[in-house]
Computed example of a mutant assay.
Amino acid sequence: MGVFAALGTALCWAIAARLFRGTGNAFSPLTMNFWKGLISIGILGAVLLIAPPVHIAMSNVLWLLLSGFIGIGIGDTCFFKSLKSIGDSQAVLVAETLAPLFTALFAMAFIGEWITWQQWVGVAIVLLSVDMVIKARKRSTAHVFATSGYLYGVGAALCQAIGAVVSRDVLSSGEIDAASAAFLRLVGGMFFVVPLITATKVRFLPTIEKGRAVWPAFIVATLLGTTAAIYLQMFAFAYAKAAVVQTLIATSALMSLGVAWVLGEKATKATVLFSAVALVGVAVLVSFGEGAAH
């Protein structure tokens, strides 16, 4: 179940990315992060009011708030800065390659969660395939080499990994449900985003051109890419190893090819080939994933 939830997260992100692109430059990175979080907090909060969770230990609440503060608040901000500095292909390449590796190392070091050598092979196959697909799709526009952009990408990967390991440690105990965990992580992220917007005096409201409807696409993208995705991600951490989940989520770059194909865009032979190789890696992860939960 954890594997399928992780793949579902990747698919939600792939579809949402296309929808978010349709909002143009109406939202700055910070305001996009703010509104995505606010809308999702409202939806998950309503769900929890209708179906209240059982008693949650205060220690779990604090750990999940910290996880969201680091993984969503700081991590997403670093990723957006990396995007602006070195472009989407390079930012995704750095973050999506390093996040699963950092997650595996942190999981081993801090929560004693190891993956088998077969799973390491699967991780390597998936990440190398994702990297090759991203490079094959790289736009011809050249970006100036900016060290800070790559450092932000590494920072984003580190924050994602820390957030993933903390979430896995809390959720694997079975003492908290996925909806509550998702809600708390989003709230934790807001503890970073709101003060940063206030301090930098960025407009909270998007800048929308007259006669252009941006909110409908943004809300649908948020429902998929934030609300549903973070719920599925938390569900995945409850049933699968942190490194496996992060690796499978990295396949969102491949799933975006499928989204593009459905929309009538053609894929190159190279991207199709490496996508097929990535599926082999996913199969290895799934085949040797028994005993993932503890």
Rank of each mutant, 00 (worst) to 15 (best):
F4G: 07
G153T: 04
A182Q: 02
I125F: 10
K36V: 01
R137G: 03
F34R: 01
V280W: 02
Q246E: 15
G291N: 10
V165G: 05
A146R: 15
V126Q: 04
G258C: 03
G289V: 02
V170T: 07
T198S: 14
G174Q: 03
L254F: 09
A57N: 14
G122E: 00
M32P: 00
L65D: 04
A253Q: 03
A95S: 14
M32V: 04
S287N: 11
V170E: 06
L223V: 11
P216T: 11
G112Y: 01
A238W: 02
A14M: 01
A292Y: 15
L224V: 06
A157E: 08
I162D: 03
A156H: 04
M1H: 13
G75T: 02
V282R: 00
A199I: 05
M255P: 03
L30H: 07
S148Y: 04
S287V: 09
F288M: 09
A104Q: 02
G188R: 09
F191T: 04
A157P: 08
W35M: 04
T207D: 14
S40V: 07
V282F: 02
T116I: 07
T198E: 09
L93F: 15
A16Q: 11
K84F: 05
P29V: 06
C78S: 15
K81I: 05
V282P: 08
Y150G: 12
S85P: 04
T207G: 03
N25P: 06
S167I: 00
A240T: 08
A107C: 01
S28R: 12
M234R: 00
M1I: 10
G45P: 01
N60C: 09
A276C: 01
L285V: 09
V245A: 11
V284M: 08
I86M: 11
G42R: 02
L101G: 12
G211H: 06
A250M: 12
A229W: 00
T198R: 13
A199M: 09
R18I: 09
S252L: 12
E113T: 05
G225Q: 05
A253H: 01
L19S: 10
V187I: 15
L66T: 10
K36N: 12
L65P: 04
H143Y: 15
E96Q: 15
V220W: 15
C12W: 02
V170Y: 07
F106S: 05
G22T: 05
G122I: 00
D177S: 08
R139I: 10
K36M: 10
T200L: 15
W63M: 15
A240M: 03
L11D: 03
S140G: 10
V133M: 07
V130E: 07
S67G: 07
V170C: 07
L30M: 14
F79N: 13
V187D: 02
A243F: 01
G22I: 00
N25S: 13
V144Y: 15
A283E: 07
A10Y: 11
A10N: 08
E175C: 08
P29E: 06
F192Q: 06
I72K: 04
S40D: 06
T200E: 14
S82L: 08
V272E: 01
